[in-house]
């Protein structure tokens, strides 16, 4: 089984460069149905309107952090089942533990490469990388 190329992905980061990197790397994986948000609040509203198949979010954002967003998603009956990948420079053990406790599906540390992104997406979507 391979990645569902039609999956709808919401990417969240307050750095425009990182959104562009993620979009381009996803396009190379032939995933083109991607929506961007610069902050957690905008992302959450996007998801409520139309729940995505995958969420890829930064952690360090204001005012709503990626962890806050993750908790909101996991507390929402319509969204709680959606795979959520945290892509962040926060690499301390306590960060990973906190994200795991909040229900993150996988965790990517910046800077990352395309292979890691592909592998994590495949992992949370339950397909071979």
């Amino acid at each position: 089984m391979s990645l569902n190329k039609n999956m709808r992905v919401v990417i969240v980061d307050d750095y425009t460069t990182m959104l562009r990197i993620l979009r381009n790397l996803l396009r190379q994986l032939e995933i083109e149905n991607v929506e961007e948000a610069n902050d957690g609040d905008t992302a959450f509203h996007l998801m409520q309107k139309f729940p995505p198949d995958l969420i890829i979010s930064d952690w360090n954002m204001a005012p709503m952090t990626g962890l806050d967003l993750l908790r909101k998603v996991r507390a929402d009956a319509r969204l709680r089942h959606i795979p959520f990948i945290m892509v962040t420079a926060e690499s301390k053990t306590e960060n990973v533990i906190a994200a795991k406790q909040a229900g993150v599906s996988n965790y990517i540390v910046k800077p990352f490469n395309a292979d890691t992104l592909r592998a994590k997406i495949a992992s949370v979507c339950g397909v071979a990388a």
């Binding site: 980061d13 750095y15 990197i21 790397l25 190379q28 800077p111």
Partner: peptide, 14 residues
Amino acid sequence: TKIYEASAFQDITG
């Protein structure tokens, strides 16, 4: 792909 990956420097340094 390598250029895209390396462009993450801006996020990290920022």
